[in-house]
Computed example of a mutant assay.
Amino acid sequence: MIKSKSLSLQQSVRQVKGNIVSNMGEEKVMLSVESGKYYNFGDVGGNIWDLMAESITINQLVISLINIYDVEKAECEQQVFSFLEQLLEEKLIELV
């Protein structure tokens, strides 16, 4: 099991509300109202973002993504932790 510095599979995360989010083709884009920054989450990141509309454990995120994409669990965990750490750093998600 992979564990990051600040996150674990048992922790729950959710979106920080108040951002402007839109679909552009198959990609999810967002404007942070607080920082004025623009983000392009792409397809996979957009799916992760949608799954975090309500509180969800990181383990549930990983399981959902494994069911959608052809990816090994360890690789999925590593990529999810990396993505979530970036979102935390940008204050786009919160730990519940």
Rank of each mutant, 00 (worst) to 15 (best):
M1T: 14
M1C: 14
S4G: 05
K5T: 10
K5E: 08
S6I: 08
L7T: 13
S8M: 07
L9W: 01
Q10H: 02
Q11N: 03
S12P: 00
S12T: 05
S12N: 07
V13M: 02
V13A: 01
Q15I: 08
V16K: 05
G18V: 06
I20Q: 05
I20E: 03
I20D: 02
I20C: 04
V21C: 07
S22C: 13
S22P: 08
S22K: 15
N23I: 13
N23P: 12
N23Y: 15
M24L: 14
G25M: 12
G25N: 12
G25C: 11
G25V: 10
G25P: 01
G25W: 11
E27C: 00
E27F: 01
K28A: 04
M30H: 10
M30R: 10
L31Y: 15
V33Y: 01
V33P: 03
V33F: 05
E34K: 15
S35G: 14
G36H: 07
G36D: 06
K37L: 08
Y38N: 15
Y39Q: 00
Y39A: 01
F41L: 09
F41M: 06
F41Y: 09
G42Y: 05
D43R: 13
V44R: 15
N47D: 13
I48Y: 02
W49Y: 06
W49A: 04
M52F: 10
E54G: 15
E54W: 12
E54K: 14
S55K: 09
S55H: 07
T57I: 03
N59H: 12
N59Y: 10
Q60V: 11
Q60N: 15
Q60K: 15
L61E: 07
L61T: 09
L61P: 10
V62L: 04
V62M: 05
V62Q: 01
S64L: 07
S64M: 11
S64F: 08
L65W: 11
L65Q: 12
L65R: 12
I66R: 09
N67H: 14
I68G: 09
D70Y: 14
V71W: 12
V71T: 15
E72V: 09
E72N: 14
E75P: 02
C76F: 00
C76V: 02
E77I: 13
Q79L: 05
Q79G: 06
Q79I: 01
V80F: 00
V80M: 00
F81H: 03
F83W: 14
Q86C: 06
L87M: 10
E89P: 13
E89V: 11
E89F: 10
E89Q: 13
E90G: 06
E90N: 09
K91Q: 08
I93Y: 05
I93E: 00
L95R: 09
L95F: 03
L95Y: 05
L95E: 07
